[in-house]
Amino acid sequence: MVKITAAEVNNLRKTTGAGMMDCKKALVEAEGNFEKAIEILRKKGQKVAAKRADRDSSEGAAIAKVDAGNTNGVIISLNCETDFVAKNESFVALANELAELALGYTSKDDFLAASFNGMSVQEKLTEQTGVIGEKIEIGGFSNLSAPFVGSYIHAGNKIATLVGLSANVEGVATVAKDVAMQAAAMNPVALNEAGVDQSVIDKEIEIAKDQLRQEGKPEAMLDNIAKGKLKRFFKDNTLVNQAFIKDSKQSVAQYVKSADANLEITGFERVALG
């Protein structure tokens, strides 16, 4: 039998993230062949992934990254099954590494096919499923481009947001972070009224009419009153119209313009776990 040294086991562990015993078993099975041992561990991951394919992976880490020029940003969530794994330092470190790589991609499929340390991202996820023993996958994937992009990650990596602003002016980084925090905390459905899906609008109007009927309001009055309630819905649920959480006397749009009269929010992205 080929003798396996501790250094070889440690090298395989560093390369794959697998446990020491799993690495030793793989090297023994591969008769000391390093590449074959990696393949053995990958196949183990594939078997575990197949068994856990129908498991819920609602825990994990949502990570936002912005490029050096602050003009492009991305959010990914690296999902797992338990909060215990989600809080593991190596798991969060992997999520950050993958998010850095994701900055170069605009679609989730292209990102999953991208090369990551000698294998594809998808192969890495399968490998880690075998290593950790939980379903590991990319859940959310969103990107944003603008003249200035800012980001925010809520404590615990449960929510991550990106915000795009129309110009890179003085103080824009603070504004972007504040608005990104707003989007994380208040979960707007759209940037403004125009961004709200018509099906959502129709549903809100119907809900308002049903409430008014239960209150005994005349049918002829329902449309006008419902439109008023819809305006309230837009105020509460669209980012630019929401009351700014740091100063409720002004809207988010008014706060942004307090930094520069011509500054506007061009878009936002939000990824949340659970």
Score class of each variant (00 low, 15 high):
residue 5 T to Y: 11
residue 9 V to W: 13
residue 9 V to L: 07
residue 13 R to S: 05
residue 14 K to P: 01
residue 21 M to E: 01
residue 27 L to G: 12
residue 28 V to R: 13
residue 29 E to S: 01
residue 30 A to Q: 01
residue 34 F to C: 12
residue 36 K to Y: 15
residue 36 K to R: 06
residue 40 I to H: 02
residue 40 I to N: 04
residue 43 K to G: 14
residue 51 K to E: 12
residue 54 D to H: 03
residue 56 D to L: 06
residue 58 S to A: 06
residue 62 A to I: 14
residue 62 A to Y: 11
residue 64 A to H: 04
residue 65 K to M: 11
residue 74 V to L: 02
residue 76 I to V: 10
residue 78 L to F: 01
residue 79 N to I: 07
residue 80 C to K: 08
residue 84 F to V: 00
residue 87 K to W: 00
residue 98 L to W: 04
residue 98 L to E: 04
residue 101 L to F: 08
residue 109 D to W: 00
residue 111 F to D: 11
residue 112 L to P: 02
residue 114 A to P: 05
residue 116 F to T: 07
residue 118 G to A: 10
residue 121 V to H: 02
residue 124 K to I: 08
residue 127 E to L: 14
residue 130 G to Q: 13
residue 131 V to I: 09
residue 133 G to Y: 05
residue 133 G to Q: 14
residue 138 I to P: 00
residue 145 S to C: 03
residue 147 P to Q: 13
residue 148 F to W: 05
residue 155 A to D: 08
residue 166 S to Q: 01
residue 173 A to G: 13
residue 176 A to H: 03
residue 177 K to R: 09
residue 179 V to W: 01
residue 179 V to G: 05
residue 181 M to A: 06
residue 182 Q to M: 01
residue 192 N to E: 12
residue 193 E to G: 07
residue 197 D to S: 07
residue 197 D to C: 12
residue 198 Q to H: 14
residue 201 I to Q: 10
residue 206 E to R: 09
residue 208 A to V: 11
residue 210 D to G: 10
residue 213 R to P: 15
residue 214 Q to C: 07
residue 220 A to L: 09
residue 221 M to A: 13
residue 229 K to I: 00
residue 230 L to R: 10
residue 230 L to A: 15
residue 240 V to N: 03
residue 241 N to H: 10
residue 241 N to Y: 06
residue 247 D to I: 04
residue 248 S to Y: 15
residue 254 Q to E: 13
residue 256 V to N: 10
residue 265 I to G: 03
residue 266 T to G: 08
residue 271 V to D: 07
